[in-house]
């Protein structure tokens, strides 16, 4: 008996040791995977930080009041002048127009999906809204171009309006998706209370559901605007490029900020003569970076305002 108790005690110890500690191989794999997961995050941060740093560092060189308030009219070669005013106005007009087209359609579709949506049509709409978020931006531009050339003839397709239509194709599904999420958050008790008071359904939706979720809807719309404001490709092929100020979206080409960045980059290095003092060889690159800084500030600002609106104005539902 006494000979068998010693190994039993030993076995108990060994079992305990086995249970409280992971064996080295498994622990090593666990460590390696932890390092890899942290590494993946660090790796993704490298381009983000590098990009933001470059944009801020190169963009601030020409980011002056004059840059914001002058156009490119009459600017050629390496002249130390020229700005982005016409592109800012163009972006403002085209984006506003796109929002005017897509917000009503998007909001009503979201209302349909949340309040009425049942049956095959609602299922199809839900599915294709998701599919539409994946339409390539350049295809949206081609669609707007094809639509307007078939209606107005070959010359009618280079205006701000065409660009706005292209952007709204990209914007509507984003608006629908975010508004739908917000409308779903409205508690059913509010609707029921309204029905119990004998309020008709449409008035319930307008006065109760929309009123309750207005902060969330604003956020959704702002984020959708932030998404399309940086779109370049559809505007390159629809609104086109111009050097001058144009505020009329129904007539003539319109410059926008992203297209401005692209066209400045495309012009490349200016060939300056030896010792020519008023010629800056890298002026186009510097303008592109400054416009990129402005565009990023606008997009980040819209994102920030969108999040703050939800935080400040959403009703306290306790």
């Amino acid at each position: 008996m006494s000979t068998s108790t010693a190994p039993t005690l030993d076995a108990v110890e060994r079992t305990r040791a086995l249970l409280v500690s992971v064996d080295p191989g498994r622990r090593r794999i666990d460590r390696i995977m932890t390092v890899l997961v942290y590494g993946a995050f660090a790796l993704a941060m490298v381009p983000l930080i590098s990009l933001l740093w470059t944009v801020i560092d190169s963009g601030r060189v020409r980011f002056t009041l004059e840059f914001l308030t002058s156009t490119m009219r009459g600017i050629y070669g390496g002249i130390d002048a020229g700005g982005v005013y016409h592109a800012m106005i163009g972006t403002l007009v085209i984006t506003l127009l796109a929002a005017v087209i897509s917000v009503p359609v998007g909001l009503l579709t979201a209302i349909y999906l949340v309040e009425y949506g049942r049956g095959p049509l609602a299922r199809a709409v839900t599915f294709f809204v998701d599919v539409m978020t994946g339409i390539p931006s350049i295809v949206a531009g081609l669609f707007a171009f094809a639509l307007f050339t078939l209606i107005l003839g070959p010359t009618g397709a280079r205006t701000g309006l065409v660009g706005a239509v292209a952007l709204s194709v990209l914007m509507i599904p984003v608006v629908v998706r975010s508004c739908e999420e917000m409308l779903k958050l409205v508690p059913n008790e509010l609707r029921e209370a309204s029905y119990a008071l004998g309020v008709p359904k449409w008035l319930t939706i307008v006065r109760v559901v929309l009123r309750t979720s207005v902060a969330g809807l604003t956020t959704g719309v702002l984020l959708a605007v932030a998404r399309v404001i940086g779109e370049t490709a559809p505007l390159v092929i629809t609104a086109g490029t111009t050097d001058s100020y144009n505020v009329n979206p129904f007539d003539g080409r319109m410059m926008t900020l992203p297209v401005y960045i692209y066209s400045q980059w495309r012009q490349g290095v200016v060939p300056c003569r030896e010792g020519q003092a008023d010629c800056l060889a890298d002026i186009n690159e510097l303008r592109a970076w400054a416009a990129a800084l402005l565009l990023i500030l606008i997009v980040m600002g819209l994102n920030l305002i969108g999040r703050l609106v939800t935080r400040w104005f959403s009703p306290k539902l306790r």
Partner: peptide
């Protein structure tokens, strides 16, 4: 109800129109 259902249908119409106009052009 008709208006909001119409908006949903319009959305499907837009997707169909994208395909249609690209094919025509």
């Amino acid at each position: 109800r008709w208006i909001s259902t119409g908006a949903g249908a319009l959305l499907l119409g837009v997707l169909a129109a994208v395909a249609l106009f690209l094919i025509v052009r």
